[in-house]
Amino acid sequence: MVATPIGNLADISLRTLHLLEIADRVACEDTRHTQALLRAYGLERAGDRLLALHQHNEAQAAQQVVAWLNAGERVAYASDAGTPAVSDPGARLAAAVREAGLRVVPMPGASSVTTLLSAAGCAGEGAFVFAGFLPSKAGERDAAVAALAQEPRPVVLLEAPHRIEALASSLAVLGDRLVTVGRELTKQFEEIATVPCARLGDWLAANPQRTRGEFALALHGAPAAPKTGEGERVLALLLPELPVKTAVKLAAEISGEPRNALYDAALRMKKET
């Protein structure tokens, strides 16, 4: 499973270039795109050594890859850009190869997800949610945004240029919550900006070029709800009668406060008694 550059052709590893050179065959999302990529590195292949494997034929083409592997051939799979099987074809291929008792070897490399997070400054604690592409229908997209309204972890979204304005409209209901938008990451006209969700549409409209290219967005985590003290009050009543985990679970359900924080409070209370 070969990760390929998401823009800048220099973002490829020496290990990946070696693998592409020695592979007997290359399966890929788009043979024309991958042939151009290989040509850029001096690794152009004969047409019969390339296999199109995309969302419309992945199950069938995966069986051809399995047959080649069983015959002792080395097969590389590359999506058009970034890491395969993450909002791109490849997951069913990897599953089919694994189920056949064969080895799936990941070749790490470019990813718009981690590229954006490294510049967004919102995932310092390490936890984030990858939501990928939200639904294209307005009602379903608005419902998905509403479900993320209280998410305390950063949420990474992907979007195509023809839908970015619609996504900005849906995100506007989140008001002052910050979103970092990455446009054309690693490419010549890369832009990264952090704005309130309510202003994302204005940011796009400020320059006609901003609705072009591929987008990754990092929705910053929702601010933690202020502590009410209700959770610890309930804990104090429950702990003398119940095990710690049970008391914490009930206190969280009653107060709506985070379970992890209440668990820490419960341990502190136990030490103090």
Rank of each mutant, 00 (worst) to 15 (best):
L157I: 14
H33G: 00
V86H: 06
D176Q: 13
R92S: 11
Q150F: 06
T180A: 08
L93H: 05
Q150G: 11
L69K: 05
L134R: 14
A59F: 05
E99I: 02
A193Q: 12
A216R: 02
A222L: 11
G82Y: 03
V155D: 10
A40Y: 01
N260K: 14
F189D: 00
E257D: 02
L43G: 02
K271L: 13
S111C: 13
E165T: 10
D30P: 03
L53W: 07
G126T: 10
L171Y: 11
A27P: 11
S87K: 06
A224V: 13
T4Q: 10
K245C: 10
E230V: 02
E58Q: 04
A261C: 02
A149P: 03
W68P: 01
R45E: 13
L43R: 07
K270Q: 12
A147K: 07
S118D: 08
G139F: 02
F189G: 03
A172W: 14
Y263I: 05
T194P: 04
L116F: 07
R98G: 00
R103C: 14
R233Q: 11
E253M: 05
L51E: 03
P84Q: 12
N207L: 08
Q60P: 00
G221Y: 09
R268N: 11
G72E: 06
E151F: 08
E44C: 06
V173K: 01
L219C: 12
T273A: 15
H18N: 09
L242C: 12
A52T: 11
